[in-house]
């Protein structure tokens, strides 16, 4: 147990000389603006909502679109892109960090699986990143699943 001492000496030295190198200046320094001056925030408006062609699309726009994109190739947001979701395996989108629960579930997205998910996402996948998006009305879920089926064609 004598080694305890040696360790502590090592730690003390480490604490007192934590950075071995002297102050390093930046190799490159690109000054774009000064704080508070210029660099106006991007004020472009959020993308306008499209036509609400069906009940499902309307519900999707209100309840789901905050996190999920649907166009092919569109980047994922807070949730994965849903293009082609019907019949696909959970955890398929490359640019989205799925929760362990979702990724390892092995679920294939049938209408029934989607219905279970939408009824209570956290219950289906404890630990899912899908904190919102619960649709308690079965008719709403049916409409949204119909819309998702449509865009998966």
């Amino acid at each position: 147990m004598q080694q305890t001492k040696i360790l502590f000496i090592g730690l003390i030295l480490a604490a007192l000389s934590a950075c071995g190198s002297p102050a390093e200046e930046p190799a490159e320094q690109l000054i774009v603006a000064k704080p508070g001056a210029g660099a106006a925030p991007d004020s472009s408006p959020a993308p306008a909502a499209g036509d609400l062609a069906s009940k499902g699309k309307a519900i999707f726009a209100a309840a789901c679109a905050a996190c999920h994109s649907v166009e092919a190739g569109e980047a994922s947001g807070a949730g994965p892109n849903l293009h082609g979701i019907l019949g696909a395996k959970a955890g398929r989108v490359k640019d989205f960090a799925y929760s362990q629960a979702m990724k390892t579930s092995g679920v294939i997205w049938t209408p029934m699986e989607l219905d279970l998910l939408l009824a209570n996402p956290a219950a289906k996948f404890p630990g899912t990143a899908m904190a919102a998006g619960k649709l308690t009305d079965a008719a709403d879920r049916e409409a949204v699943i119909a819309y998702l089926t449509d865009i998966s064609k």
Binding site: A66, A78, A129, A131, K134
Partner: peptide, 19 residues
């Protein structure tokens, strides 16, 4: 980062202001 958005829990780190 959980907050309530119109009463529902959302993860504010991944929910844009536009929503």
């Amino acid at each position: 980062c959980t907050v309530h958005l119109d009463g529902r829990p959302v993860r504010s780190c991944s929910t844009p202001l536009s929503q």
